[in-house]
Write a protein that binds this DNA or RNA. Structure first.
Lengths: 181, 181
DNA sequence: CCACGCTGCTTGCAATTGCAAACAGACTGG
DNA sequence: CCAGTCTGTTTGCAATTGCAAGCAGCGTGG
């Protein structure tokens, strides 16, 4: 029983990798695994061990827990892992900063759903406590506030979209034209 | 090789099992693994996969994370459980967005202590026994590229500082042209 | 044009996981 | 004394992981 449906772990890894704009071989090298194996993992043909998973997480600069949760190896019973909750609970930033952070985070989230109605149900296991972007209890200022200048948000968005993360060494001259394709 | 000396993971499992006063076979049954295999795991002769580890954790009624940490498969940075942790663990944003958020948050934190004694109000909420604390990691990984354009950060800072705090009222648009004093 | 470097994918193969079956010791009791 | 039942352990094997090597496609440029 090959049971190729190892779950969304492969898709998730590939997604993160492509989002990070790095090649399969680059990630493989960064994670210390072989390229073909990573390829098979991403396509769900192999079930990586915890060790491999951990190394891939490091290579992707993401929390290993995120991968384990995706792989279904950890019960996602972690309400604390909600960014919004954590931000709201933080006492070391000002109210203003809090609002800015929340706005930016939500903006990112919106960016990531380009209208695709097919939201993965597997990730929906973690119900986020803020279904509405606006209208929250934590607000010392009236809800009429202007969250963030759109220029700023736009700048942040474009920055996260176009920037090229790890410069691929000094091998040959690769001109990263921030071109998507 | 062939002597994977998996470390304390085996001892840890056996410890937990004996503390729970259950036999090897009982735990094996509860975890859904074979008795001999569990025996080998406990003695460090085999390196269990994440799946097996997860099942053993369930059989022991302990957090899977505790086992992963013991196995060295997870960085034990959970005690923070603050905004940074949540951001790092978030699976719904891209790597790029993650770094941006982290940068902004840290920038805010720095803003708030204009020279005050550095104090970290960390909320200790570790619910699982971690007898062997591993190295602690603080701050974003510096081995990467320049985080955020300073223009952006500066704009954010000035925005959070200059925006009218408790009485914005009907302000409509807020154009942060606060370049001058 | 073909070499070169890059992208990812497919193929054999060593090493490993994980299990079923059988083994050794201790304790109970007929 | 031997049957029965625990304890944990060892042995052989199917299935799988994970990798080195090689394949095919794409874009650049000598």
């Amino acid at each position: 029983m090959a049971l190729p449906k190892v779950g969304s772990i492969g898709e998730y890894i590939r997604e993160q990798r492509t989002q990070a704009k790095i090649s399969l071989r680059q990630l493989a090298a960064a994670a210390g695994v072989s390229n073909p194996y990573l390829s098979q993992i991403e396509r769900g043909l192999r079930k990586p061990s915890a060790e491999i998973l951990n190394q891939i997480a490091k290579g992707l600069h993401i929390s290993a827990q995120a991968l384990y949760v995706q792989a279904g190896l950890i019960e996602d019973r972690e309400p604390d892992s909600d960014v919004l909750t954590a931000i709201r609970a933080d006492t070391l930033i000002t109210e203003r900063q809090r609002q800015v952070l929340i706005d930016i985070y939500e903006s990112f989230r919106k960016e990531n759903r380009p209208g695709a109605p097919d939201e993965d149900a597997r990730t929906a296991k973690n119900a986020h406590p803020t279904p509405e972007p606006h209208g929250n209890d934590a607000g010392s200022s009236p809800d009429d506030e202007a969250p963030l200048p759109e220029e700023l948000l736009t700048a942040l968005k474009s920055f996260t979209e176009t920037s090229a993360p790890p410069a691929p060494a000094a091998n040959g001259h690769v001109t990263p034209e921030t071109k998507e394709g």
